[in-house]
Design a protein around this nucleic acid. Sequence first.
DNA 1: AATGAATGAGTTTTCATTCAT
DNA 2: AATGAATGAAAACTCATTCAT
Lengths: 204, 204, 204, 204
Amino acid sequence: MHTTEKKRSDPERIASRRKQVLDAAESCFGSSGFHGASMAEISKAAGMSAGHIYNYFDNKDAIIAAFVQQNVERVSTLLGDLAQREDPLQALLDDIDRSVSDNLQPGVWKLLLEIWAQSAREPGIAKLAQDADRVSRTELHCLLKRGRAMRGWATDDAALMARIEVMIAIFQGLHVRPILSPDLDARAVTEATRLAMLPLLMTE
Amino acid sequence: MHTTEKKRSDPERIASRRKQVLDAAESCFGSSGFHGASMAEISKAAGMSAGHIYNYFDNKDAIIAAFVQQNVERVSTLLGDLAQREDPLQALLDDIDRSVSDNLQPGVWKLLLEIWAQSAREPGIAKLAQDADRVSRTELHCLLKRGRAMRGWATDDAALMARIEVMIAIFQGLHVRPILSPDLDARAVTEATRLAMLPLLMTE
Amino acid sequence: MHTTEKKRSDPERIASRRKQVLDAAESCFGSSGFHGASMAEISKAAGMSAGHIYNYFDNKDAIIAAFVQQNVERVSTLLGDLAQREDPLQALLDDIDRSVSDNLQPGVWKLLLEIWAQSAREPGIAKLAQDADRVSRTELHCLLKRGRAMRGWATDDAALMARIEVMIAIFQGLHVRPILSPDLDARAVTEATRLAMLPLLMTE
Amino acid sequence: MHTTEKKRSDPERIASRRKQVLDAAESCFGSSGFHGASMAEISKAAGMSAGHIYNYFDNKDAIIAAFVQQNVERVSTLLGDLAQREDPLQALLDDIDRSVSDNLQPGVWKLLLEIWAQSAREPGIAKLAQDADRVSRTELHCLLKRGRAMRGWATDDAALMARIEVMIAIFQGLHVRPILSPDLDARAVTEATRLAMLPLLMTE
DNA sequence: AATGAATGAGTTTTCATTCAT
DNA sequence: AATGAATGAAAACTCATTCAT
């Protein structure tokens, strides 16, 4: 049991255990919300005793924070893809189909709403979310600036940033729609979204 | 006992007491969220014992429900104004300045997020919010159809409804932005919003 | 309103109000038990505000006590009837039919059980019930002694009192039976009761 | 950790904890009644925090139910003894001394009254008590029928069952007597009880 | 005499967190 | 490393009782 290998405590075992907890938390938070999910529930889903979780996280808030961190980082990944593309403006337009239908998926918006609502209450959570959002905005700003440069358009940084705010608003707003309008027509909404995005992206 | 006024029992005293509780709840919900706000906290803010609140509301959920109801009804009022205007399409465009800065007000978005998150969890709350949203959508649909008719444009109902979804998404998304991007430039965002709204409103 | 008559406060109006409350209490106690019946419930049944009841009773316990008092006194009335009869032993036997079916009535045993259980907890209530029971026992003892004298039987007071205890036990036990054995055959039980009573009454 | 014993988790530790709670409940229920006994009181008597009790019982009602179940089962044990005896009729007569003095024990009748009163209110409790009572009646019916057969007596089932009802009524009534007549003469009552039981048991 | 608004103490119950093993 | 028994603080809610009117 203690030759030298595997079981010996620290390096990646801890990371694996934390992931195990965060995955369990994701499922619990999704069905019950941050408050509604009890440590007992999470520990059962994680296949780990409640007490043991405290060896990996200081307290429940730390789990929430780590979970939020993990989720706000996901967005960056998406932007990374865009950065690879030749013409980012066109790429964004082309991706609208996929983005819209992604955003309308339940299970996604449930958790995002939970995160946003929590950000509105807990400054600590707000900071995490704001930092990630700022990074995304900046990255997007770079991309778009490049795309505009390709087309020979001058860029007013403040104006472009405002357009980015509205573009993100559209997608984040689309997260809210399925809650309030469960029967919306996803295909038609995709069309309309493209209509709104077009001037934001393709106008000098 | 004085003239005819206040004190003796039922008709509007109850309404006034309920309002007193709902106002207190609004402030507590705003700072602590639905779950975080305790009845003790609310009762203190309402200047009323916790036990007494139960003479006006069956339980805490009933307070939340009444609060949500009150807030989702506010939107209808706004649409009522629009209905008065001669050219609703133009009116919407003209109002963007005000709408955007309204949506960026803190205290508004805090509570709306709370409501949306709660709708994602509690079917009862979801129903309230969905019903109100449906009414607003329908009303808006009427208005826009009329505006389009004035211009001699034909209307594909499904397509128009999808545009409405996106327009609402923009404004609801703008509620989320100040949480994640507290330093955004409201003026510039207003401009960008107009840019996105234009094709949704003014395209055949 | 204040000529001299009626409304002028004290003498019997108070008694009438108290009765009004006690009647209401009887119905509430019957359906909810002493603890389960709230003052609000009682006050509604009495057609009187909760606060006003406190002008006639010091507190809820006083209502319970008065109610118990009222009920334990009822028994005395029944014994009064027997005292009129020429041959009390025979009278008791003759009355078994009626007594048994009385005791099996629901609504009677519910309240009696409540009273007995309360007596087992509250010494104050116990005293009321014990005093009334002692009076009944003594009265019954007199009656039976007279009946035995008529037959020329000598009486060992202690032994006769013990028989009385058992006779009362039979009837009080019959109060319990319908709770535990809701389908019992009342006619057949009457027969069996007579069988058990006979030696207690008619043996030298 | 020592040998094989106690400490580690489930099988009988839970049973032991439940018993610990039920014993505490017995003492609290005895002095304060089901309603009067608070979880705080019970938890103190059980030497366990109130919250912890909820790991063993769903809620207070479940404690009451388990307690009632435990108590109504006790009766069956007594009947089991009788079944062993050669002549059950004679055995019942012989046991009257012991049965009567058992029934007059305080602490027994307190709790039984509580149970009966609770049965009169809560259908769930009523069912437990009725089921146990039915079993006892049936068992007793068997025994007596056998005893009668030994003597060559024919048995009218309904009539015999009615006698059983009365016999049980006598003993259950004797539970009530000490509350209302605390100074009764136990010896003399035993004699009188035998007098009443005799025709119920020994008559064709 | 009468109301019912208002209180506050007390109830059951939940749950994050700790700690002996 | 891992458990889960145990705690204690807080939550929502109820209700007898009081008191201004």
